[in-house]
Simulated scan of single mutants.
Amino acid sequence: MSIDLKTIKHISKLSRISVDEERADKLAKDLSSIFEFIEKLNKLKTDNVEPLTSVAETTLKLRSDEIESDNIRDQIIKNSPDSNEDYFVVPKVIE
């Protein structure tokens, strides 16, 4: 399938995008090559090919949802430049 300038201008008009002549030529060539590639893909016989849902054919191992760390709030608060009881104090961002 070949895309010509007339088609590019029609598409740009429908999408309300202004395209100059130089850019329209490049778009026509790019879209033509894309459609040529799609036509090649359409010719492939994929009747006996199963759909690919994942590259890795493994299943995820289930694990129980357990808390692995005991009360580390104090250790976390130590990382704050300034603290106010149990909260981080940060500089004001919005004026």
Rank of each mutant, 00 (worst) to 15 (best):
S12A: 14
E50G: 06
L52N: 15
A24E: 00
N79I: 07
N48C: 11
D70T: 09
Q75C: 01
E22M: 14
K61S: 00
I67P: 08
K29L: 15
E85F: 12
I11D: 00
T58V: 04
E50P: 06
D86A: 04
I72N: 09
V90M: 14
I3E: 01
I77Y: 01
L41R: 07
I8K: 00
S83P: 00
I8P: 01
D47Y: 04
L41K: 15
Q75G: 08
M1N: 04
L31D: 09
T58I: 10
K43Q: 10
S83D: 01
A28N: 05
S15W: 02
E22D: 14
V89H: 08
M1F: 01
T7N: 06
D25L: 13
A24L: 01
K92E: 03
K6E: 11
I72C: 08
L52K: 13
L41Q: 12
D47L: 09
H10V: 03
F37T: 11
S83I: 02
V19A: 00
N48R: 14
A28M: 08
D86C: 02
T59Y: 11
E39T: 06
T7E: 04
L31P: 05
K92C: 02
P51I: 13
T46D: 08
I17C: 12
I72W: 06
K13Q: 11
E39L: 10
K6I: 13
E68L: 05
D30W: 01
E57T: 07
E57P: 15
S69D: 07
S83T: 04
S12C: 03
K6V: 08
V49S: 05
I77A: 00
I76Q: 04
K6W: 04
I8N: 01
V55W: 09
L44F: 13
N79D: 06
N48L: 09
S33G: 05
L60P: 05
K61V: 10
I67R: 15
K43T: 09
S33F: 04
L44H: 00
T58E: 02
K13T: 07
E36P: 00
S15Y: 05
N48M: 03
E36K: 01
I94Y: 09
L62R: 01
S2M: 10
S33L: 09
F88K: 03
T59E: 06
N42D: 06
K61T: 05
L5I: 14
E85W: 06
I3A: 00
I34W: 06
E36I: 05
I67Q: 15
S15E: 12
E57L: 12
F35Y: 11
